[in-house]
Design a binder for these strands. Structure first.
Lengths: 253, 253
DNA sequence: CTGCATGGTGTAATTGGTACACAATTGTAA
DNA sequence: TTACAATTGTGTACCAATTACACCATGCAG
């Protein structure tokens, strides 16, 4: 929670250091215990949830800005990030945090401007993330895709657009390297796909199709401990994976 | 060609009416005589070509801004427009037109800022367009995709990204309604696809695939006049076309 | 040891895409 | 008038990918 003085100083500095009218919002997807997760923040003192975001330094490439913002929230350095849409309706711009409304005259309040927000989505390994709140929030945590709180502002639209984009990209790009641990089983990978797509897939066909892409290495070991047959472990063949990212999985026309 | 005084007035007004730091650039595709075309502008007094673009009014949704800008360049009202990428590297921001550099002190020069540009691509019917230059150009005209001039700034990157996006979308979306005249023959439509993809397609397989999408109406009439067998005319089934736009042509997973 | 849930592999049927062949139409040149 | 070249309309055999399903293997519970 910022005092009025702190907020005032923040606004003065922000106006000087950041590009005005431009913000970045990130949809950070993680995967844990068979569930898809999104990183979210809860505002100070109120039940208001929003997506991690921030601003662009005056001489900073926008991709770097997204990297920087997410490093602050997750501690991770090299994140798989993809710009997916720009949200630019004038009505979307409200104060990030209603609590600070009225504490400053409008002309001094950096947040009380129209912001055009560039949406990025990120895929990260759940276990590498150390969620850290920002100056305006008290909680930064994973939320389950099946149990999301209400979003502030237009963040629900941003989230849904990100998810739609992710689903579409599943059709022509490999996915998982950034979401799975180094070693994983085929059922675990399938669970990821099923969660993203929100539908059941055939176990056997999934396996053949995945292997057909040629982006997986089958390891010697198996995962013991379950109450059933021990599945083989796989890892991604990074070279082929990168190549598939570039060329796409299907040629189409 | 603007005088120093006109430029100064333009800059003062622009700073007041437009969002600073944000611009829009458009890649307008047309199709004529079997050739893919892009709408381009040539600067006053020099051989400098760039894409049509403009700025966002302070209270204007960005999609409307793109509509407005393209209406000024083409005369067309309802254009098929799609946001496809944001170009936000700080080095991309130079003065739109080098000629005006130095005519004004930097702090007054609206153009001498960093601009983050939202890229839109448009598909239009060639015959509906009345190309009109803007204040900083003397020519607005179609350029053949096979015979493009050098682009100013990062407009070549913007153009190529738009073309790549268009090619990708060909795999899961119908196209052509906005590029073809009301009635057209199958070979004409095929030529459009071949031009976009820059590759030959099999005549017979193309026909079957297209008809399989269920977005075409076969008309009774044929196109006479050619030196050969008269081909049937087709039109788009707008209802199915719109549905296909939404759902995508292939289900994927 | 047996039952059961899960994982690994195989295979037939269907669908979709590719590569052709051949007939029909139209204007032109002989 | 006729033969021909160029182009369009339609069909079909073949291969690849996807789908649906069967069967066996493994590992723990009882």
């Amino acid at each position: 929670m910022l005092t009025k003085q702190q907020l005032e100083q923040y606004c003065v500095e922000a106006t000087q250091t950041y590009l005005n009218h431009i913000s970045i919002d990130c949809v950070v997807f993680g995967f844990h215990e068979g569930q898809m997760k999104v990183l979210m923040l809860k505002a100070n003192m109120e039940e208001a949830w929003y997506l991690p975001g921030g601003f662009v330094l005056k001489q900073e490439p926008i991709d770097n800005a997204a990297d920087r913002i997410l490093k602050e929230r997750t501690g991770i350095d090299e994140i798989f990030l993809q710009q997916f849409h720009v949200f630019g309706h004038p009505d979307r711009s409200k104060i990030h945090n209603e609590m600070y409304k009225g504490m400053l005259p409008d002309e001094l309040n950096f947040f009380n401007k129209r912001f055009i927000s560039i949406g990025y989505y990120a895929l990260v390994d759940f276990f590498n993330v150390n969620p850290a709140p920002d100056d305006f929030s008290e909680i930064c945590t994973w939320r389950d895709l099946n149990d999301l709180p209400e979003f502030e502002l237009d963040h629900e639209l941003i989230f849904k657009t990100a998810l739609d984009t992710l689903r579409l990209q599943l059709n022509y790009q490999p996915i998982g390297y950034n979401l799975m641990p180094k070693e994983f089983t085929m059922p675990e990978l399938q669970k990821l796909y099923e969660t993203i797509l929100d539908k059941k897939l055939d176990r056997r066909n999934f396996q053949r199709r995945m292997l057909g892409f040629g982006i997986l290495n089958k390891l010697e070991t198996t995962r013991k401990g379950g109450a059933h047959k021990a599945p083989y472990l796989y890892s991604f063949d990074l070279e082929n994976y990168q190549a598939a990212l570039k060329q796409g999985l299907k040629s189409g026309w």
